[in-house]
């Protein structure tokens, strides 16, 4: 989209105006995420830049909110809960989701559209409705307020993402490879583990990342289905934001931005690998 040398002044103006507009939108996208990082080093319990911070006075900065995060039992318990719930929920949704995605990608599946719609529905139904429904149901079967209740609920929420990413990878999958493997005497399980899984692994991993972040970031359903003992990081943040803004929140938020950068980088590496493999 380079500007040709014969462009009229109006075209020139539009060329630069368009770039400025896009720059502003990118600024709008990034600024709120970046602004929280310096604020987390605030030496005061304020939620804004203090004069000391603006004049780059070292006394205006401190790590005390991070210290609070790593020593406060509430935040520590919430972190532990998030770190034990999310991986288990991910494991459940990835294993069931990958199997189902392989089933769905076969050529003759009856009721494929309906099945697909049902499996994707947890992503579409408003969270508050899913949460209320699961609350009543999980109370009735004695899962409300338990670790497994929250894990099952989060696994359900993560499944659509696994289905979407894995079926997308399976679209480009060459079926003759599994047939070749079968013709050489490998059983279905061996074929899956040695031939199919390594090839669709990027899709499975990105589905797993989506499922993980869905659980790790989820607050509505866990409030309904969980009890105080399952209080997760987002739940603790939600409380800290709703009642009185807790000064620890920017520090927690910065750590979570770090986590999303890590996840994004992993996905990007997977995407590049995938592109290279496909040629």
């Amino acid at each position: 989209m380079a500007l040709p040398s014969y462009a009229s002044p109006l075209q020139r103006f539009w060329y630069y105006a368009f770039r400025v507009i896009c720059g502003l939108v990118f600024f709008y996208l990034m600024f709120p995420i970046l602004v929280i990082i310096p604020l987390s080093f605030n030496a005061e319990d304020f939620f804004t830049f203090t004069p000391a911070m603006l004049s780059f006075d070292p006394a205006g900065y401190s790590l005390k909110h991070y210290v609070d995060f790593f020593t406060n039992p509430d935040w520590q318990m919430a972190t532990m809960n998030s770190l034990t719930i999310a991986p288990m929920a991910t494991l459940l949704s990835v294993s069931l989701g990958t199997l189902a995605a392989i089933g769905l990608s076969q050529s003759h599946v009856p009721f494929k559209r309906v099945i697909m719609a049902v499996l994707i529905s947890p992503m579409i139904v408003p969270l508050i409705i899913s949460a209320a429904g699961m609350y009543f149901f999980f109370s009735a079967v004695g899962l409300q307020g338990t670790y497994w209740g929250v894990v099952l609920a989060h696994a359900i929420l993560g499944i659509p993402f696994v289905i979407i990413t894995v079926t997308a990878t399976l679209v480009g999958f060459d079926r003759s490879l599994t047939r070749a493997s079968a013709s050489m005497g490998a059983g279905p399980v061996r074929t899956f583990m040695k031939v199919q899984l390594p090839l669709i692994l990027p899709g499975v991993i990105s589905g797993a990342l989506f499922a993980f972040i869905t659980s790790f970031d989820e607050v509505v359903v866990v409030i309904f289905v969980g009890s105080a003992a399952q209080q997760t990081l987002p739940w603790q943040m939600f409380i800290g934001l709703r009642e009185q803004i807790s000064p620890t929140i920017p520090a927690v938020a910065t750590l979570m931005v770090g986590l999303s950068i890590l996840l994004l980088a992993t996905l990007e590496i997977l995407r590049r690998r995938n592109e290279r493999l496909r040629g």
Partner: peptide, 22 residues
């Protein structure tokens, strides 16, 4: 694209608390 994807991957609560701060 990373500038679009980073907000997408950032926790909803982080973004909401940022707006509260701002």
């Amino acid at each position: 694209l990373i500038m679009v994807l980073l907000p997408f991957w950032t926790s909803l609560l982080v973004r909401t608390s940022s707006w509260k701060v701002l």
